[in-house]
């Protein structure tokens, strides 16, 4: 079962994502800021990251950069209320860019796609 790290500073939203993803059978690890996220990357077997962008101190873009610097095999999905970050070319480093909605269908679809792709590429690499 895939393990997903959700990086989100809003406690209510953290709760929603964790319950929704858990209901779909994913293992969910939560981080409330960028620093927290980097620590989880170090100590947990993470398959995918869902990353909020607008967070205090270290924002989602910077955190994504550091995550990919340590583990470039982990797909990162940017998940934000701001459609405008899509214009920022740094966001192209992400596996997908999803604008937040209360309906998580799109987010879940992107998660599935990303995990499928990752599974195929790791198989072909013989892992």
């Amino acid at each position: 079962m895939a393990t997903i790290l959700v990086v989100e500073d809003d406690a209510s939203q953290r709760q929603i994502y964790s319950e929704e993803l858990a209901a779909d059978g994913y293992q969910v690890i939560l981080a409330e800021n960028g620093k927290d996220a980097l620590a989880r990357i170090q100590d947990s077997p993470i398959d995918l990251v869902i990353m909020d962008i607008r967070m205090p101190q270290m924002d989602g873009m910077e955190t994504m950069g550091k995550v990919l610097g340590r583990r470039n095999d982990i797909p990162v999905i940017l998940h934000t209320a701001y459609a405008s970050y899509k214009d920022n070319f740094l966001s192209w480093a992400a596996e997908a860019y999803v604008v937040k909605r209360s309906d998580l269908t799109e987010l879940k679809a992107k998660v599935r796609q990303a995990l499928d792709r990752r599974a195929k590429s790791t198989i072909s690499k013989g892992r």
Partner: peptide, 20 residues
């Protein structure tokens, strides 16, 4: 732009919890 951003976050939370 500001209002749409500010509204989106609470809506995500409200809708998300309602679905749960």
């Amino acid at each position: 732009a500001h209002i749409s951003h500010e509204i989106r976050n609470p809506l995500v939370t409200i809708g998300g919890f309602a679905r749960l």
